[in-house]
């Protein structure tokens, strides 16, 4: 199914809104199923969900444990002496929070089916100023740039013979503190170069610009969007 990127954006927003509103595993589980079904419809490899989830595994584990311990009520499942450590309520709360994260990450995968350029096009055709649309995508590009910068530096450090895994924590903090300034400054320099490169190719020369491609918002997009918004609103109101 080829939908307009704007339709896909609306779908992602609907799914994540519901994920944020729903609180129990009983509601989140069906939502996850719907999300996965949509991914299949968009021809996204379901196994790639796992690839993305892996990066958040530690975070999810920490969140899960915190929820388990700090939510009280229900049956006590695990206790340390007389203090209850894990309750049935806590376990459920932890599980639903993890489910919520999984739904949001899976829904966000829909973004991978179109390029940032189509995203800009969609926004501009909805009369959003192009400077703003570009700013959003450049910002989205910048997070990976910071990450790349960090990965490059860590690789370069290790290649100069420093075994980061064996360095003591004090030394490690010292090392990273001394790197903070050059890395941040380096990334800022690159941002500046990027702005210069864009401007030197005529960016913002005129109040408007043209586009090589255009997106066609057809009836199926209107239909799909309407259905998703209506269902989401109904679910929220009846909740």
């Amino acid at each position: 199914m080829t939908l307009d990127p704007r339709t896909k954006m609306v779908i992602v927003i609907c799914l994540s809104t519901l994920a944020l509103i729903y609180n129990s595993a009983g509601e989140l589980l069906p939502l996850l199923l719907v999300t996965l079904l949509l991914l299949l419809l968009f021809r996204i490899d379901i196994s790639s969900v796992w690839v993305y989830l892996k990066r958040f595994l530690q975070l999810m584990l920490v969140v899960f444990i915190i929820q388990c311990i700090f939510t009280r009520g229900g049956e006590v499942l695990l206790s340390l002496g007389s203090t209850a450590l894990v309750s049935s309520q806590g376990l459920l709360a932890g599980a639903s929070l993890v489910l919520r994260i999984i739904v949001i990450i899976s829904a966000a995968l829909i973004f991978t089916t179109f390029s940032s350029r189509d995203f800009i096009l969609g926004l501009v055709q909805w009369k959003i100023p192009y400077e703003l649309a570009f700013m959003v995508t450049i910002a989205m590009r910048f997070l990976p740039l910071f990450r790349d910068e960090f990965v490059n530096v860590v690789t370069a450090i290790q290649l100069r013979g420093v075994e980061l895994k064996q360095v003591s924590w004090g030394r490690k903090i010292d090392l990273f503190r001394s790197l903070l300034f050059p890395v941040v400054f380096g990334a800022l320099l690159k941002a500046q170069q990027l702005a210069v490169a864009m401007e030197s190719r005529g960016f913002r020369a005129y109040p408007r610009r043209t586009y090589l491609r255009r997106l066609d918002f057809i009836w199926i997009d209107y239909a799909v969007m309407l259905i998703f918004i209506t269902i989401t609103l109904m679910l929220i109101i009846s909740y």
């Binding site: 390029s115 940032s116 350029r117 450049i138 590009r141 990027l194 490169a197 864009m198 190719r201 005529g202 960016f203 913002r204 020369a205 005129y206 610009r209 043209t210 586009y211 090589l212």
Partner: peptide
Amino acid sequence: FSPSVEDEIAFGPENL
């Protein structure tokens, strides 16, 4: 800075 070579090259003429 563009996601594809085509977009990269079209960027300038689009601005004009």
